[in-house]
Every structure is written in structure tokens, then in C-alpha cells.
Amino acid sequence: MTAAAPGSIPDPDSSLTDAELDTAYNVQRGVGDRLFGQLMARYRDESERAVAGLPGHAGLVHDERSGERLDVWGTDGGAPRPVFVFLHGGYWRALSRADSSFMARTLYDNGAATVVPDYTLAPHASLEEIVRQARAAVAWVHRHGRAHGLDPERIVVGGSSAGGHLTGMLMVDGWQRHFGLPEDVVKAAMPFSGLYDLRPMPRLYVNDWLHLDTERAAALSPLLLPATRHCPAVVTVAEHDGTGFLAQSRRFHARRPGAELRVVPGRNHYDVVLDLTDPASAVSTTLLELLHSV
């Protein structure tokens, strides 16, 4: 698959009015402020519960340039474990690694480890810099993971919402050589409710902190970037997600070699990823299958 020029793949959102575009992508409004607040609190509560007493290493610097840190959870001194690198959401300006380790105990109990990096939030960092930091976190796992109980040859990446976008940017070609990494450093991926085509962003309220123009938005869109390597992936989205996120997930799935699409029934944009707290859920089962197949 070759790189796409900004205009070579049609942007279905270009025909929408500003009000229609806001409806498609303003998922916080879609769930309401009360439920949104409850779910954000649950992210933190479930994360604290998951890592309580869990072996690991917290607060390790993964990127010397920015000083950003990550946490490693679920290693116990035995053989290096396959690792899930999870990139949090928050429309690139909110949340942190402290809200994002809720899957760590499920994975630990099933033979895998979890890495949750921080990245500098917008507008304090450009989106290009945020992408670089996400890639630096994967580079850290590959170079230093073995010393912390991680298998650098079994890295699976994932993330929710903005973290789904960052996951997509880890699935594309070319960035690996800039970090001295093998092209297949990412063995599989599971993005949740991601944004893969950022061309609508300059017309949305999120541009108050992203400050994107059309050209930069296209250059930061994984749907428009080359991905020639077969990378097993499960593109996951909620049944009751925003219509923009549903449509983008379907389009991204269609353009990614080795990808399958999973629409999770009964879930919304924010609670779909919390199914990873339940080892019996379909999304947990799928993630564990990915981790143990690479």
C-alpha cells in the first residue's frame, strides 16, 4: 500500500455541516456529563485496583528528550512476558498512565505484561511530538524491556480514542528506522474507537488545542499513510460510539492488511475499553489471543 496524497482518498466528512461534524465526533456530549464523569473516575479506580500488589516497575523514563515516563506491570522475575503497550485517550489533552492500567491484572493472570506510557499533552506538545513520544515508548520496550521482564520480540500495541490514533501511527511504515528498530517491532495491534483520518479535526472544537491545518492533519492520519507489512490487528469500536468513530474504524479496517473489525455490542466510546477488566469478555479474550500468538 503506497502513501496517499491528502486528496487522493476522499474525505467523507467534508460534505458534513459543522453541526453534523460536531455530532459525529463530540462523544462526551453523546454520553452526557454525568456518565462521562463516572466513567473517568472508573478508569482511575479500576487502574488502582488492578495494580495493587502487582509486581512491576513504576515511573521509568522512556523518552530522554521529553522526560516522559511509563509504568511496567505484571512481571515477576520469570521468563520475559509478551507485552501490551496501551496508549491512553483523552483527545490528546487529558488523562494519564495513572488512569490507564485497568487491564494489568487480567493480563498478568494470563501470562502477559502491561506497559502504560505517558505523553506530553496538547497544547503543551504538538501532535507530531506526541506521536514521536508514543514511538519512543515502543523503542524503550524493545531496547530495555528484557531487563524489566518484557519480551521485546512480542510487543502488541493498543489504545483508546486518541490512543487509538497513536496505535494507528505505530502500525504504519517508515518510522521504525528513525529509532533503529526492526520494521516488525510491533507484532500486533488492538486500537479501540480510534481516529485514523484527522482531516475533520481542523473544523472541530479539538483544534482549539491541536492547532492543525489540513496538510498536517493529513500527514498525521494513519488511514492515509503506507502500511505494507501484514500486522495482525483487531480494530475495535463500540456499537454506541460516535458515528464518526464507527465510520473511521470501518474505513481503517478496510485499508489495513491483516486487520479484522470488532464492533462491541452494548458499549459506548468510553466503556468499551473497560471490558479489558473482565477476563471473560470478548475483548479480553481477543487481546490475550493476540498476545499469545505473536
Rank of each mutant, 00 (worst) to 15 (best):
P265N: 07
E48D: 15
K187H: 10
G163E: 03
D13W: 14
R199D: 10
R105L: 04
R97Q: 07
V83C: 01
V141T: 08
H292D: 08
G158T: 04
V27N: 11
H165P: 05
D11H: 06
L274R: 12
T214L: 14
Y270S: 01
S281F: 09
E128K: 15
S96K: 00
M171V: 12
R69F: 11
Q133N: 05
V235W: 01
F252W: 09
P279A: 12
S193W: 07
S193Y: 06
A280W: 05
P232I: 07
G74L: 07
A79N: 03
E64N: 07
G149E: 09
V115N: 04
H211I: 04
W140L: 10
H88C: 00
D33W: 02
E20N: 01
G180T: 07
P226Q: 01
L166D: 08
G266E: 01
P226G: 08
I9C: 08
R216N: 07
V283S: 12
D271Y: 00
Y43A: 06
A122M: 09
P202T: 08
A4R: 14
G90R: 05
L95D: 01
R49K: 12
G242P: 09
D208T: 14
A280G: 11
A4W: 06
M1T: 14
A98D: 14
L95M: 13
H124Q: 14
L150A: 10
T167W: 10
H269D: 05
S96V: 02
R199P: 02
A122R: 08
V263M: 02
S100E: 03
Q176E: 15
P191Q: 04
S284I: 02
P6D: 04
T277C: 01
A122F: 01
S284W: 04
